[in-house]
Design a protein around this nucleic acid. Structure first.
Length: 195
DNA sequence: CTACAGATCTAT
DNA sequence: TAGATCTGTAGC
């Protein structure tokens, strides 16, 4: 069953942690694509300098202030899409970014799904899903699934938000320990093993 | 109006 | 380590 209003209508950090293990589904003409969420980041509101809502209400960020359970998709670096779920009560500009998934259905095993850009590419998510509801009959939703054991959930600072001053160090990133769907900063990339 | 940097990824 | 490639936002 789909995660509903009450799931998203909570603190961003809580939703980010609870989204781990849940299954993101995109149903479209070409068929259904589904993947298990293994990495998320919370962007907690306008006071959070890493959150797009810190820019105030603009054409781009307006959706963040809307009802929880809405898709927020944006384009970064002119080529990569990032998928978020709007969270917290209406009026609070907050969201949870999905940074990594593991294929469940409709994604070739060879396709990489670690990193927010790759998640959207693998799941065919783009700006056409921006502002669509995750709660009703829209093309995107999150299916409830068993959560990972608490001891398999790891927490740390968000990626790529160094400009956000003290907010950059806040531990708002959550991921499932040892999952291949979890992204790693290039500076920490391990050398490729051929053995 | 122009300039610039960004919640990234890939190839060199 | 830099280039792709586009848009919101700031600055003039």
């Amino acid at each position: 069953m789909k995660l509903g209003f009450d799931f998203y209508d909570r603190r961003a950090v809580q939703v980010a942690r609870d989204l781990l293990g849940q299954v993101l589904v995109h149903e479209r003409a070409g068929g259904r694509v589904a993947a298990r969420i293994v990495e998320t980041e919370a962007y907690i509101g306008p006071e959070d300098l890493a959150c797009h809502a810190s820019k105030g209400r603009t054409a781009r960020t307006e959706v963040l202030f809307g009802p929880p359970g809405t898709a927020y998709v944006f384009l970064v670096y002119g080529m990569h899409h990032c998928f978020n779920a709007v969270v917290e009560p209406e009026g609070v500009g907050a969201a949870v970014l999905v940074r990594g998934v593991e294929p469940v259905e409709g994604i070739a095993a060879t396709v990489r799904t670690d990193g927010p850009g790759r998640v959207c590419k693998a799941m065919a998510i783009d700006l056409s899903q921006n502002r669509t509801s995750l709660l009703g009959e829209g093309p995107l939703w999150v299916e409830a699934a068993p959560r990972p054991a608490a001891r398999r959930i790891v927490r740390g600072p968000r990626i790529g938000v160094d400009y956000a001053k003290e907010w950059a160090d806040r531990p708002y990133r959550f991921w499932v320990k040892d999952s291949p769907g979890v992204s790693r900063p290039s500076s920490l990339m391990l050398p490729r093993r051929n053995a």
